[in-house]
Structures are given as structure tokens and as C-alpha cells.
Design a protein around this nucleic acid. Structure first.
Lengths: 163, 163
DNA sequence: CCCGGCTTATTGAGAGTTCAACAAGTACAC
DNA sequence: GTGTACTTGTTGAACTCTCAATAAGCCGGG
């Protein structure tokens, strides 16, 4: 328990570059979206997920699952998106607990308006900086990391009686 | 202006894996730190930077630069860290505007207590998932991305007269 | 010296996230 | 059926982050 496998000098170097690069990149993307389209990156991704769903509609918990977000976060986010008129809530006929979130036409338009600037930023700040081989490597690396990431911060009730 | 260079199918795939992997990873690290050590990841990194500085002390703006954080954010964070007793503010004798942040013994102890769990998480969730070649590739990729990331969200007053 | 222009750091309000608690509905054993 | 256990989604409070505004000190030209 006490024999921690510390990082080597080299590993720490890479780890720090990685964190700096990724935070720099995501910060920049988030900033661009907020500045040019007035929406947080998280909300942009919610709109994307809805836009790709049949009828542009998803159950709240499916949406949370897709976005790796907690139900609570999603609930707050959708409340705000509803205020701006980009999303509408509908009730589920078969399960009265359930809620659907549906992308409105205004929401779709906002997404369509935001996309070009966002994609341009992604291309310039990420893909343009890497060689084609590095892009493929990044894909492999990402898949490998994903395999180790525990199921998202979903409700994931604490089953164990621990503590 | 209107000819956006959209992502190819393959690129979008990689982009999404990348985002999912990275968000999953950072979420998990943040969660582990908050749960086991009661501190946000951002604060952990502030403590790390201070612990490595001469006299465990840094000017506020140097610290902000190191951490790629805005002055404002750092100011709020240090205020809170001061409340918990992990950091102490000192005034700068040569520049009366300036402030030093100094890691207290309690802060150092908290950091020392948090480090093993954090490192273990980094090793298990990142390094253990990758081959040695992939680790090196990740280092190169990170450096390449870093080269394109604009200077951090520092104050960076808008020099241009635009808008 | 002194004034305008930077730089340093803080502050407050607004927005997003987390966590725990909760209401409401479903499911399944009995 | 009825009750217990689980699910779905929401809410409020506490916390972090962002942005714009502000106070205060430095600095260089005239």
C-alpha cells in the first residue's frame, strides 16, 4: 500500500507536457466558442448529441450517458438551454418519470452557426500541428486510455457497503 | 471565410475518442483527489508549483503563469487555500503592488499526503495503459500541440483596437 | 517633479459544476 | 395487490471559474 510507483523523470516530463497541452487546447476551444457563439463547450456538445439523434430528441439519461455527464449537471444545463430557447423538454409517454430533451430549430440554427468556427479551431490547433502518423497514434492512444476510464461519473450509486 | 475545412470521418472519430479519453481521465483524477484529499486538482497543482519553488514561495503572477491560470482565478484560489491554512500571503518588499504566495508546513504536509494516491491514479489510468512507444509518441504529440496553443489565458490585455 | 500609461493583484457578480437530498414512478417478489 | 427496492430526473447550497471593473503602485517622457 505504501510502495507508490512514482513517475520517472521522463514520465513526469511527458505527463506535464500532456496536461499543459491538453488544458491549453481545451481552454482555447472553450474560449473560442464562448466568445464567438456565446455558449460553453459543454452546451455545444449537448446540442451536437441532440442534433444527431432521431427526431433530434433524447432521454435525459441517454444524453447524460453520451456526454459523460452527471444527471444533475445535465438537468441544470438543459434548464438553461431551455431558457435560451435552444432545447425543449417533453414528457415521456411510456415512463412518466422520464423526460425527453428536443433540439429546437433555433437550437439547430445556433449549432450550425457555431460549427464552422469551432471546427476551424480544432483543425488549426490540433490536426494542423500533427503529422498524419501522429494523428493515427493519437487515435490509438485515446482508445487505450478510454479502456481504462471507469464508467463515467453517472449516478453510479455506491453499491458497496464501504465506509 | 466560408470554406470551412471540415473534419473527415476518420478525423472526427479520432477527435471524439480523444476528447472522451481525456475528459474521462481528467475527471477521474479530479474526482480521486477531491474524494481522497479534499482538494480540487487545480489546487493540488498550485501546491505542487509552490513546493518546487525556492523558499516554497512565488509571486502571484509567476504562479499564474506556471499554472496557465488567470490572475483572477489564482487570487480566488489562494484566498481559499489561505482559509484552509495551506498557503500564506506575504507582501513583496521591492514592489508594493506585488504579493507572494508561500506554501505553509501544513500545505506541504497535505500535498505529501495527497501525492501517492494521485500518482498511483496517473500511473494506472495512463501509463499502464500505454506501451513505452506510445508514451514517447504522446510526449511528441503534446509538444506539437503546445507549440500552437496561444499564450495562456493570462490577462493578455487586448492590444489590438479590434472590436 | 508629474502625469499618463502599464502592471499587479483583488473584488463582486454571474454562470457552470458537484454533491446530497428528494419527489415521483417503475419493477418485482411475495 | 402490496410493499420494498431501484430508477429517473430535479432541486438547493456550496464551490470554482470567468469576466469586467477597480485600487494601487511602478515607470518613463516631458
Amino acid at each position: 500500500m505504501s510502495d507508490t510507483r512514482w513517475l520517472t523523470e521522463r514520465e513526469q516530463d511527458i505527463w506535464r507536457s500532456f496536461m499543459a497541452a491538453f488544458h491549453g487546447l481545451t481552454d482555447q476551444l472553450a474560449r473560442q466558442l464562448q466568445r464567438d457563439s456565446g455558449m460553453p463547450h459543454t452546451y455545444y456538445e449537448i446540442l451536437v448529441s441532440l442534433s444527431e439523434a432521431p427526431d433530434r430528441t433524447l432521454r435525459m439519461s441517454e444524453l447524460a450517458g453520451l456526454r459523460g455527464s452527471s444527471r444533475s449537471r445535465l438537468s441544470h444545463a438543459v434548464a438553461r438551454l431551455e431558457d435560451t430557447g435552444w432545447v425543449r423538454r417533453r414528457e415521456c409517454p411510456t415512463d412518466k418519470r422520464g423526460s425527453f430533451a428536443e433540439l429546437t430549430d433555433e437550437g439547430f440554427a445556433a449549432l450550425a452557426a457555431a460549427a464552422p468556427g469551432h471546427v476551424t479551431e480544432v483543425r488549426e490547433k490540433l490536426f494542423d500541428k500533427l503529422t498524419p502518423e501522429q494523428v493515427e497514434q493519437l487515435g490509438e492512444i485515446s482508445k487505450a486510455i478510454l479502456s481504462g476510464v471507469d464508467p463515467p461519473p453517472l449516478p453510479l450509486c455506491d453499491l458497496t457497503g464501504d465506509r
